[in-house]
């Protein structure tokens, strides 16, 4: 089975998807992410799809479902790095993914997570 690295930095779990995942591998990854959340706890989850060349209806659903499941465990999810071709194709396919939080890159994703979870950045402004 294809292994995807799952990192934890502070309160955030970061999952850089580095390879094309087939359906079973995507399901396996979803399970491992939830396992990691259960084991270590996290306020935020960032899934980096920057090198993923296509997101079809199955992969799209796995991403949406993973975010919903993570939320039920108290973890907010941000998908980062979606390529413009992937985004244009997703819309044409009819997969809107409105429920997902997204950001351009990991840095913006962390900023967004801080806002979503009421992290340090937000507090220091006021």
């Amino acid at each position: 089975m294809i292994e995807v690295t799952i990192l934890k930095i502070g309160d955030t779990i970061i999952v850089p998807i580095q390879t094309e995942l087939h359906d079973l591998a995507a399901n396996f990854l979803q399970e491992n992410i939830l396992k990691k959340i259960e084991k270590v706890g996290a306020r935020g989850l960032i899934i980096d799809v920057g090198v993923v060349t296509i997101i079809d209806s199955f992969m799209g659903r796995v991403l949406v479902d993973t975010a919903k499941m993570a939320r039920l465990m108290g973890t907010e999810t941000v998908i980062v790095g979606m390529k413009k071709e992937v985004v244009m194709t997703l819309l044409q396919l009819g997969l809107m993914m409105q429920t997902l939080h997204t950001a351009l890159n990991i840095e913006d994703g962390i900023t967004l997570l801080n806002r979503l979870t009421g992290g340090n950045h937000e507090r220091s402004i006021i």
Binding site: E20, H22, D23, L24, A25, T53, I54, I55, D56, K83, E85, V86, M88, T89, Q92, L93
Partner: peptide, 30 residues
């Protein structure tokens, strides 16, 4: 499901060699 990935790769390889745009490749491979 691994063959599905292979099918995607083969379609992409041919489109790349024919000079299709990245958007056309992404749509077709999807």
């Amino acid at each position: 499901y691994e063959d599905v990935i292979l099918a995607r790769q083969k379609a992409r390889e041919l489109m790349q060699s024919m000079g299709f745009s990245l958007l056309a490749q992404t749509r077709m491979v999807t």
